[in-house]
Design a protein around this nucleic acid. Structure first.
Lengths: 340, 340
DNA sequence: TTGAAAGCGCTAACAA
DNA sequence: TTGTTAGCGCTTTCAA
């Protein structure tokens, strides 16, 4: 592996000059810089991140801590984070807690604090007190994405408003019998978010004087399969079922749509469905939903962190990221005629 | 930040001893090791990865190069890779090419070769000759996951056999009019895979003496939306449409199912659908499919690389990973009565 | 079983 | 504008 010395010697300058030239620092003559760049290119020189990390104290990498990678929200946030990191010349290190267990400990104690990264982004999830303390102890800038975690600033949508907008859309259409398919924590993911959305559903219903039946507030886990199962329960009695379902995630809404299809219930004629997310499948499935952009949230959070690394002042309380009601054809006034 | 020196001084041993004790090397007395471990714990010492990386030449990190993070296959592979890395004490660095453009170059030249990682896993995708050369130039162990890339060994299923199994399942049921919804390269993802599956479809049909109509071999991009659009075209004429569709991905198969629902075509009564993947949604949607496990593939590939890093001999040509026909209720003999 | 000491390849003062 | 020279915090011979 060619080192900075090789480059320096090959054109008879010092390693300091090579370093300066290659990093674009001022104080290097144009001519020298060019010669250095050519020599580096020629020799195939690439700086060692370990060496520069050790010497400068900056690794040029950002970490993302998450409970799982292959879920719509998390992987989309990663995409947004990564886009900004790439543009800023940073690398992305992913710390996946992957459920619970011993490894979870190890990740915290071995990986995160190991000076492999300059800043850390934490995906919204349930954390133990120990873990929270470890996070606070990290001296690098830290930020939570996607929902609040006790005492740490976070970037995300206003979940209360988002749920309210969804429910009020149904109410405005004339629905009164509105069920809620709520999210919930399989192994502790996003424990705050489902709660906030549930409360928002309840208070919005109350504000409009609409009754809420306990059996119409159903647990799901944000995902398709459980959403579909829950929908079967919710919709099984033709004589006594809601005219609309508010789902705390699009994936669960897809489950409702699929269950309705199996049961021969027409949407939106006999049932309106609204979700939250604007998942990739929402458009082709004509799902009315509250759009949020995890990518944008990730990008925004990464920018915040990046700015701090460049010496900017930390933003103590980032404002909520935008959400938007996207009306498609899965919602209509109750008992409306089939679209055909 | 407490350093190894602090630990060493605190109990009056040398830094070498601390290093040895903490890494579990032999040649340290049990008593000393215990004292070191306690002292380290006490002081909250965590080794710096930059420093140990520089000194030892090993970063204890593995890189994954991919064209996109938030796609079913890629994020699932990441999950599998990460699981093994976690167990082995390695960190995961994600290099996302994110489409094309200048950044793509930068990722290759700045990040990958930068000694940030000990080994590299490349997700199956289209690469330029330059990029391929850069890869070959990396002296760390490298492996492709998911489909062959010119001249680099890879881990993945036998795509030819997988497609054949799917088509023969339909043929065994008595179908003769079988369409193929093929994948294809939006920005060059998996360029070999869709081709192999298409060829397998064609040759299997030919082997059974079944005709293939050009208009029944339709392009998709592996995804739901395009799959649904393509299905509308394929199925629009009730008098002249296939009795079965083989889809090169489950997501496209979901599109077919959704299109069929919109068109009032019953599955499997009037149309059989088979996919490839066994996506999370396949079970609740009752999709017959060829199961593959990207997680397992990722884990297997990571293990291979890890073994090489431990000094094992490189496996020149890993065998194909398993796939399996999962029969659900989206396939049945042609013109069978509705399941009800 | 332990310690001393020489780097690993780079950055950043400080000098020139 | 450029060079000299200490380190950064570890690992790893080599000696004891």
């Amino acid at each position: 592996m060619t080192s900075i010395d090789d480059v320096a010697k090959s054109i008879g300058v010092s390693t300091a000059t090579v370093s300066r030239a290659l990093r674009g620092l001022s104080g290097v003559s144009a001519g020298t810089r060019l010669r250095v760049q050519c020599a580096a290119e020629e020799l195939g020189y690439v700086p060692s991140s370990s060496a520069s990390g050790l010497a400068s104290g900056r690794t040029m990498a950002m970490g993302v801590l998450l409970p799982q990678i292959d879920r719509w929200y998390f992987s989309a946030v990663l995409e947004g984070v990564d886009r900004q990191l790439r543009a800023a010349g940073y690398d992305l290190v992913v710390f996946n807690l992957g459920g619970s267990g011993v490894n979870r400990q190890r990740v915290f104690h071995r990986s995160i604090l190991r000076k492999r990264i300059d800043a850390l982004l934490v995906m919204c999830m349930e954390l133990t007190d120990d873990e929270l303390q470890s996070l606070q102890a990290v001296d690098s800038p830290t930020l939570v994405v996607g929902g609040s975690v006790r005492g740490v600033r976070h970037v995300g949508i206003d979940d209360d408003a988002a749920a309210r907008d969804a429910v009020e859309h149904l109410i405005a259409l004339g629905h009164k019998d509105i069920a809620h398919l709520r999210g919930g924590g399989s192994f502790g993911i996003e424990f705050e978010v489902p709660r906030i959305r549930e409360e928002s559903y309840l208070s919005t219903m109350a504000r409009h004087g609409l009754p809420v039946r306990p059996e119409w507030s159903v647990f799901g886990d944000f995902r398709f399969k459980r959403g579909k199962e829950a929908a079967f329960t919710l919709l099984r009695d033709p004589a006594d079922r809601p005219t609309a379902v508010f789902c705390s995630s699009d994936e669960m809404a897809f489950g409702v749509i699929s269950a309705a299809a199996d049961l021969g219930i027409s949407i939106p004629g006999e049932l309106s469905v609204v979700g939250i997310d604007d998942h990739e499948f929402a458009d082709p499935l004509n799902l009315t939903t509250i759009r949020q952009s995890p990518e944008e949230q990730g990008a925004y959070a990464a920018d915040l962190l990046l700015a701090e690394l460049e010496g900017g002042a930390p933003v103590a309380a980032p404002g909520p990221r935008p959400h938007e009601l996207i009306i498609r054809t899965s919602t209509a006034p109750p008992h409306s005629l089939p679209a055909k």
